[in-house]
């Protein structure tokens, strides 16, 4: 058995709409080690959610289509699984937490029933036993058991997200896909939910793919970080490597647009321009039109991921020049 719970190789996902082909993911490569947490960072539209849905083979089809590539989950290829195998895998081996707890729960089912549903489905036990287990799950995420009979609208946002976490963890999956689990919550609740997730994942020896655009969350929770831009990984490495020796101009841009606690008066530097239209991606490096370091060559050739030390890889051709260095790093 390999060391990685999840390996994604050369994944290409397109959405073929009437207006044209949306190239959401264009050759994605990454892996998540066992009991590791990978943070997938990128701005809206970078293809993060599509990546997570691909792992479950749930990309809405039509219009979405997984064109090529392999997704290996615990040694098995997800993309060649039969419908039955997929149903067994979903929820049992891999579970997903959705972004908005307000809409991720069925409004006409009690939360206990919703947690029990997944348990009943995968562990083949009676509804009554499943419901008892569901109560235990609720208790585990810090909600009184008696509330299993309540409906989602009777819970606050943070508690609903706890319920969603309980549903996802109910069958003890090996991999948890968390799609911006804290984006819809306010800051105090964010920390609670993150702590809870981190704690449960550690105790159950699970792996997690944490999708977020909040670098603070990544720093707090993740072992590894992958930065995604226009459907590709532009930088990947351990959290320490990516945060402390940032290599890609886009990652630098992300850090520059965050307020700095030590120099509070400093102006934020946003990344200029907008994400390219995925229907009409530029030739060469997709980030070149917005990149302050871009040269003529960048607009011609698509950069490959190159090894820059340790587990750190970056997709930027500027490193052909051995003296190239980002401003962030040169200033110390």
């Amino acid at each position: 058995m390999s060391d990685n719970i999840l390996e994604i190789k050369d994944l290409v996902v397109h959405f073929e709409t009437e207006d044209g082909c949306v190239r959401a993911i264009n050759g994605l490569n990454f892996a998540i080690g066992r009991e590791k947490t990978l943070g997938l960072v990128g701005e809206t539209g970078a293809g993060k959610t599509t990546t997570a849905l691909s792992v479950l083979n749930l990309v809405p089809n039509p219009p979405g289509k997984i064109k090529s590539g392999t997704i290996t989950l615990d040694g098995k290829d997800v993309l060649t699984m039969s419908d039955k195998e997929l149903e067994e895998m979903r929820g049992n081996d891999v579970a997903m937490i959705f972004q908005d707890p307000m809409t991720a729960l069925n409004p006409v089912m009690t939360v206990g029933d919703q947690i029990a549903e997944s348990i009943e489905l995968h562990q083949h036990i009676t509804p009554k036993e499943a419901f008892e287990k569901a109560k235990e799950m609720l208790k585990m995420v810090g909600i009184a058991e008696s509330r299993a009979y309540d409906y989602p609208h009777q819970f606050s946002g943070g508690m609903r997200q706890r319920v969603v976490v309980a549903i996802a963890l109910a069958c003890e999956p090996k991999l948890l896909l968390a799609d911006e689990p804290t984006t819809a919550l306010d800051v105090t609740i964010q920390a609670q939910v993150l702590d809870l997730m981190k704690d449960l994942i550690d105790r159950r020896h699970m792996s997690m793919l944490l999708i977020t655009h909040d670098l603070g969350v990544v720093a707090e929770v993740c072992d590894d970080v992958a930065v995604m831009y226009a459907g590709k990984i532009v930088e990947i490495g351990s959290a320490d490597e990516v945060f402390n020796s940032t290599r890609h101009p886009y990652t630098e841009g992300l850090f520059d647009s965050l307020p700095n606690l030590r120099e509070r008066g400093e102006e934020l530097i946003p990344i200029k321009g907008l994400m390219p239209d995925p229907m009409n991606l530029p030739e060469g490096c997709a980030f070149a039109p917005r990149c302050p370091y871009a040269t003529e060559a960048c607009t011609k050739q698509v950069p490959e991921l190159r090894h820059v030390g340790g587990t750190h890889y970056v997709a930027c051709d500027a490193y052909h020049d051995p003296n190239f260095c980002l401003r962030r790093n040169s200033n110390g």
Binding site: L56, E87, G91, F98
Partner: peptide, 14 residues
């Protein structure tokens, strides 16, 4: 189109 339907699929329901 609502998220809980997607989440039901992600749970492995046919």
């Amino acid at each position: 189109g609502q998220e809980f339907v997607e989440s039901a699929y992600a749970m492995g329901l046919p």
